[in-house]
Measured scan of single mutants.
Amino acid sequence: AVSDRLIGRKGVVMEAISPQNSALVKVDGETWRATSGTVLDVGEEVSVKAIEGVKLVVEKLE
């Protein structure tokens, strides 16, 4: 799938994300809905860990 190429890519949080709420991230110039197990604020850099349906699963870039 096209989205599989995004695993391992870096992105930027466009809307705050919490474990209860998905929000938008920008990866390679494209906007995607994403979820995370932690709270992520706007502007934080993230890494794509997986794809669940049409959502990216991201975590904060260390």
Rank of each mutant, 00 (worst) to 15 (best):
L61D: 06
K55L: 15
G37S: 14
V27G: 01
V54A: 14
R9Q: 09
V42W: 04
V58H: 00
W32Q: 09
E45D: 06
S18H: 09
V25P: 01
V13R: 00
T35C: 13
A16Q: 10
V12R: 07
R5K: 10
E44C: 12
N21I: 08
G8T: 03
K26L: 14
A16H: 08
K60M: 05
L61I: 12
V12T: 08
S22Q: 10
V2D: 10
L40T: 02
S3F: 10
K10F: 08
T31Y: 15
E44G: 05
G8D: 04
Q20I: 09
P19D: 13
S47A: 10
V13K: 01
V25G: 01
D28G: 07
V46Q: 02
V25Q: 01
G37Y: 12
V39S: 12
E52V: 12
G8W: 00
L24R: 06
K26R: 11
E44M: 14
V39I: 11
V42H: 04
A34C: 10
G11S: 02
V58P: 02
V12Q: 05
G37E: 14
L56Y: 00
A34H: 02
K10P: 06
V12W: 04
E30I: 08
T38K: 07
E44T: 12
Q20P: 14
R5N: 08
A23S: 08
E30P: 07
K49G: 03
M14P: 02
K49T: 13
A1G: 12
S3Y: 08
E59H: 04
A34M: 00
E30D: 08
I51A: 04
V46Y: 00
V58Y: 00
T38R: 06
S36F: 04
A16Y: 13
L40Q: 02
T35E: 11
S36P: 02
S47E: 14
V25I: 10
V2F: 10
V46C: 04
E15L: 07
S18E: 07
A16S: 10
V42Y: 05
G37T: 14
A23W: 15
K60Q: 06
K49E: 05
Q20F: 11
S47C: 15
L56F: 00
V48N: 02
V42C: 06
L6Y: 03
D28M: 07
N21R: 11
L24Y: 08
V2H: 10
S18T: 13
S3I: 11
V12A: 03
V48C: 00
R33L: 15
I17C: 15
N21V: 09
T35A: 07
V54S: 14
V54R: 12
T31L: 15
S18Q: 08
V57P: 03
V27D: 00
V13E: 02
M14R: 02
K10C: 13
K60R: 12
E59T: 07
D41P: 06
I17T: 15
K10M: 09
S3V: 09
V2P: 15
D4I: 11
D28S: 05
K49A: 08
T38W: 07
K49S: 07
E15R: 06
T31M: 14
V12K: 06
S18M: 08
G29T: 05
S47Y: 15
Q20K: 10
A1C: 13
E44L: 07
G8V: 02
S3T: 11
E59I: 09
L61K: 06
